[in-house]
Design a protein around this nucleic acid. Sequence first.
RNA 1: GCAGGUGUAAUCUAGUGGUUAGGAUCUUAGCCUUCCAAGCUAAAGGCCCGGGUUCGAAUCCCGGCACCUGCACCA
Length: 569
Amino acid sequence: MKEVNSGDVLSLCKRRGFIYPSYEIYGGIAGLYDYGPLGTQMKTNIMDLWRSIYALEEGFVEIDSDIVGPEMVFKASGHAENFQDLMVTCKLCGEGFRADHLAKDFHPNPGALSKKELGELIVRENIKCPLCKGDLSEVEEFNLMFKTKIGPGSGRIGYLRPETAQGIFVNYPNLYRYMRETLPFGAIQIGRAYRNEISPRQGVIRLREFNQMEAELFVDPVDKRWPRFSAVRDNKVRLVPNTDEVEIETTFGEALDKGIIAHETIAYFLWVTQRFLTKAGVDPKRMRFRQHLKTEMAHYACDCWDAEALLSYGWTEIVGIADRGAWDLTRHMQYSQADLTAFKRFDQPQEVERKAFKPKYGLLGPEFKARSAKVGKALEAADISLLKDGKVELDVDGEKLSISDKYFDIVDVKEKVNGVKFVPHVIEPSHGLDRILYTCLEHAYTLGEENYVTLNLTVDAAPIKVGVLPLMGKDDLDKKGMEIDRTLRERGIATYFDDSGSIGRRYARLDEVGTPYCVTIDYEVFENGTVTIRDRRTTKQVRVPESEVVHVIEQLLHGRPFEELIAKV
RNA sequence: GCAGGUGUAAUCUAGUGGUUAGGAUCUUAGCCUUCCAAGCUAAAGGCCCGGGUUCGAAUCCCGGCACCUGCACCA
């Protein structure tokens, strides 16, 4: 097989209506692409497949949250802070530069410098514009989020979301209640996200506007087992652990037992991901899971695996599966003051004995006057470990107070505890839909004899499921064809009716857009009432009665092997 | 963002400082055609954008935009 080249794939995508460069008549914009008729259908198919796995099989609930969000959300998420580069612009020619790049001749590690330090360095070393020697502006932050305003006038600052996940996190209290306050539970969202990439490249692999399918699973931090894992543990998987970065083939169970994968839940969703990708049409031989290096781990993650596909661009991340710990919910609790915890009821209420401060209100009153009640409450709430050298440091209405032990006793209190509140951990399988779609296309792209192109898309992904082809556009063959076409469509099957030109050309056209089956109506339909079904992969045909063709097609689309039909005939 | 390369029709491409930019594929119409890109006839469709040099620019120069490769970046 000849080497697949991304240019050939993108050329086909454009020619046959999968993907178009956006705003092409105005010269195009880097990092923006439109889906054409076939691409849109294929994207919908992949989304439906993913939904059927997460929503139906795994029981996740789906939401659809806003694309625009207020600044505070992204301060909490860390994107406002971590998601930016420091830039300077030339006052003369207006060109922009990364400040740390300009500083690299004057500092061993300019990437580590702050905005202020970089600004000072540029002034001190008298760094000028590398292009025109003009003076440089102050150091400014270039955030990779698209900024906007919410509302008229000065408005509130808003950003287009850089990932769909935050929409699920901020809805955690609603979803927790919806799920009747039981963990674990999962929520999914499919939607657009935006990153103002400095240098979009590689077709739809790095986009400025892209599609994500994200799942957020909320779990008990002390119980990351997964009941159904035992059913999948013997399946094979290719892993690249972060210990020695060598690819190994093993089973999910073995990788878990050896401690390569952190826990059952991650392991289970690696399997779910592998199954989903394979069904969508990613070649299992060109796919693996790579564990993030400790240094590479995102600002929130505590374990992370990428599903990678081998493309003409090299190994490319298409899904990320991260254990984000309590990071997101904790941050949103801090910034929003909302309660984003879960409550775990003990089997038996527990009697807990602990030491506590018992304020002596008789002495507090004269000393603290009107505030004494608040001081007392603060003491009661304070943990005994705060006691140091006979004093307790307290924060009362923002004021630090030091309370000496003559104002309280230390007593044993018995409390009945029904359960414990905790911040759930989040396991996140996050899918780049555009990358997955492109991977399916490239992995399906097959160049045969005389440059005959076949897209071996899976039945699930293929935008057109069945071509309906009368051998001739006359002698009532076309009428028969139209009847069959109509019936298939009434059953919800996407067809393409074509009675023009030679039959070979029509097969070729349909092969090129990945249509798995063709129904061909030839003259035998008038002799014995049969038509043929052609299989794209083998180009073999079987003959079935016209009355059964819809039923057989439905079976094929639900996974019945074509070979079985041949054997039967 | 840096360096290099490329830009001719939906796709692949030929071409030259000078008449009407050539071919192939694809598409459409008609004819023909009883299963894997057949044939005939006709039609439609193009020099990435802007500026400069020139009597004349698709061609040379500059700028922009897009794409490709490498580097950098990649929560």
